[in-house]
Design a protein around this nucleic acid. Structure first.
Lengths: 203, 203, 203, 203
DNA sequence: CGCTAACCGAGACGGTACGTCCAGTCTTGCT
DNA sequence: AGCAAGACTGGACGTACCGTCTCGGTTAGCG
């Protein structure tokens, strides 16, 4: 994947000892473990090194700080985990997709996710990684479902899809960060259903 | 206000020199300045002390750590700043209230707010302060408007008001934290309007 | 003593917690031990801290680096260790003083001394400390003896005392650093005697 | 020359590419430059490699560490630089030889020399190199002059030549390392003259 | 009106992680 | 083989900040 980590020289050809992919993976795995065991802030670069058997110098060679490592470690795990349900009914698909998101938010990964969001305002790397590799992935699934729903006439065609997505995901994130953090599928369903019908009493 | 800061002994009687209210205020003011100038993380307790002329020991006597100071400093500023518009039309009021929230999110205070949200997962004090003194204030305004709208028949009476609030605020927070951070009133209006009408094409 | 270590503020009066003299002493003692056990280069600041129970931060607060600590630790031990023999005969006194110096050079402290001399070209603090607190002490003893010898008519009165001192100490240092490092009293005596009589065959 | 650097395999035969003499010279030249520009300690192996176009691995193949490289680089420059004056008068010759030594000590090379002496206690290679290739060279010149002076009756025949040499060189080194480091020819002359006549007032 | 508890500013301290630096070793592919 | 390029381990370095701890001095309000 990459993007977080500093790119190799990539100059003339392939001179010099190549980067050890094994070390790379060991670092990501160790970091991932630590993220779940002790959390983003309590985790130290030293400990990542010790657990992965990779020296601190090497870690700092490829990542600017532990947050960048964490972002890559966490997000590389998340990749390709967001299947599009495609049941035939766009409405059902939407429900399923958002239930999936809810499960993510309320699970162990959701805690790490919240910690990374907290780091984002202070760290550009985390911010861009998070956006590129997770936020967009979430949105893409919904965007596809949305397109199908518009095609089938289930969803309003006059709405900017990005607005629709914000309306669907936003409430879940809000609950995760500022409300009752233990979401369940049922409450997700309720929120989606209301969003579909609207708040207005007007017919 | 408070609750964040440690309460004075208050038990034995009232002997001895009382807490200096002047120091208290100076700390909050200095902290508030620093929050805007350098941000939550970069700000140090040392610097708060230096700028306010209050010693570090005194700061730690009254607050558990710099995040608690920050929370109190920030939130005491925010108090009583959320007027209920009450124009007669609940729909208009809702629009106005959410525009106000949008302005807050996208302004200088919004940045500090985002930083505090980032601290919340790691710090119970921040979490509860934030909730008690800001989140609930935001919700209360909307809750009142909502009640009026239900009474006037503008809003659906069959929805849990808390769900409605989540649906209205959530998308704004989502944009603030993970999307285009420069929200404007117009896009807030759009989101609210769509939320009112719903996403479904069904009549 | 001091001079090596950074001086306290010494400003208005005596505000603030005073420097812990206990920590100061513990650091010097630990350093002194380490100097003899592992030598100047192999000794680490970390280890000084661990052994003395003083934190690294505190050490760096008072000394710029481990070499300055070593200089102070070593030299504070050496202080007031250079008694003037004063037997009545200046010639005898000279012999005794230079035997003492030889013993110092060839003993355990001589090794540390040589290591510090090696650091001097790279470190101003070490250089000045060494000069102020050891070199001058050595020279002073001899200078006093020299004055007596001139008064008694034993030594040539037409020689700059500093030249005389250089001629007497120089060969010992040379042997210590570049020749056979295990000097003994007898060879010191020989060198001094020759220096007294001169190399020239001319009467 | 050498002895410092590891000898090539030379056992099995002469298979494979022979050692590049060009690299060898480039390393020594680069090291020599760095020794004068930044000094022994500040100079890094990395930089020697970069400047000479020789890889670090190659350097470590032929020398045990940077101090050994420095010793060879410095000393190979010094070789055959110590001409015996031989004017006819041994006394004059002695003066000239020691003026030469003084000039060396007080010049740019003297600084490097002092730095190498500082390394000697920690590094056997440096120690032996220094002794073999510089100290002995210095002493040899004087030793030859001394022999002539004894033969001509100018110098005392009852003194161990090595003692005489120590007495003559020692004071210069002492001044270089622990006293006023800017020696000049005149002060060297003074020291030698006093050494010749002796310090004693006795006839 | 003086005593005394509690406050407060200054600043030293232990602890802990940080990110950097360099030595010395190892692994590629080119020559 | 020798060698340049350059990744890697190991470990010390010096810095920064947190939260705690003395000091000496100050300031109410009880007695």
């Amino acid at each position: 994947m990459a993007g977080t980590r500093r790119e190799p020289d990539a100059g003339v050809g392939k001179r010099g000892r190549p980067r050890s992919e094994q070390s790379h993976i060991a670092v990501l795995r160790a970091t991932s473990e630590l993220l779940h065991e002790v959390g983003l802030r309590a985790m130290t670069t030293e400990e990542i090194g010790a657990r992965s058997g990779v020296s601190k110098a090497t870690i700092y060679k490829w990542w600017p700080n532990k947050y960048a490592v964490a972002a890559e470690a966490f997000l590389s795990e998340m990749m390709a985990e967001w299947p599009d349900p495609d049941t035939g009914s766009a409405t059902t698909d939407l429900l399923l997709a958002l239930r999936g998101l809810t499960a993510f938010y309320s699970g162990a990964n959701g805690r790490v996710f919240a910690e990374l969001i907290g780091e984002a305002p202070f760290d550009l790397t985390v911010r861009t990684e998070l956006h590129k590799n997770l936020v967009l992935a979430h949105r893409d699934v919904i965007k596809r479902v949305w397109a199908r729903g518009v095609a089938t006439g289930e969803f309003r065609p006059d709405i900017d899809p990005d607005d629709a997505i914000d309306l669907l995901i936003g409430p879940l994130l809000y609950r995760r960060l500022l409300g009752h953090p233990h979401l369940d599928g049922a409450s997700a369903d309720t929120l989606v259903e209301i969003t579909m019908l609207g708040l207005s009493a007007a017919k």
